[in-house]
Amino acid sequence: MTMSDEQLLSSDTESSDDQPAPTPGTDGLTDSTDIDTGERSATERTLLEARDLSVYYGKEQALDSVDIEIPEKQVTAVIGPSGCGKSTFLRSINRMNDLVDAAHVDGELVFDGKNVYDDDVDPVALRRKIGMVFQKPNPFPKSIRDNVAYGLRVQGKDDGDVDEKVHTALERAALLDEVEAQLDSSGLDLSGGQQQRLCIARAIAPDPDVILMDEPASALDPVATSKIEDLIEELAEEYTVVIVTHNMQQAARISDKTAVFLTGGELVEFDDTDKIFENPEHDRVEDYITGKFG
């Protein structure tokens, strides 16, 4: 990636238009990802690690003994056919599965050395370190400003200049230019793609460590999708991004690592994205990638 870390880390927020944003070719599965993994693997540190992680809904097993190490400040894509457990895996990271009465988890999900399923972990506190973006844009029926400020208020981070934090988050979500004049109008008045970027701004405003994205572009048109994809690559400069997608080109375009789940909640293969798409170990993964299955 060409963008400097300083630029996104500094609160001096210059528009990303000034520097050419990395736009990986849509058909070239190799050129962009080659550079990414090459550059990053040097400083790679595992932030999230699943150890023998299984999730059950009632008697049905949704995730089967998953072992995976997700690196910090990279984009990890989770792909697989529908019903393969990829969303379940995502929701087990910030314990959103706790909200389902019948859900039951075995094994460990270690976040920065701490198993988040330990008895002393408060899922509410955990979720404050992990932002989440959902499949369908779900802004609150509140103003744009209140949507972005919501997380700050909930988490008690609304001391100081909330407005500045709102502006920064909107800028990082590449939405500020479009909505700066109408911060007090309803978030529901925005287009689908804008709504999803608003939800991303809402997720990053409280400054979490990880951002989970559950098929964030599946409800959007191609133009809006490409904006979201650019944004995700930029976010990886500062955040650890885990994105579930059913769109394999998307995974190839934006991710550094790819995890392939197949039926039964089984993690079949996890590796650098270019390796997965060029030369996967498993025949089943190759079949899936090439469209013979799923």
Binding site: E108, F111, D112, G113, K114, V121, A125, R128
Partner: peptide, 15 residues
């Protein structure tokens, strides 16, 4: 659930 890792992250508790 037992954990054999040292815990260097504290998520804290929300009241």
């Amino acid at each position: 659930m037992a954990t054999d890792t040292p815990t260097d992250t504290d998520f804290g508790q929300v009241s």
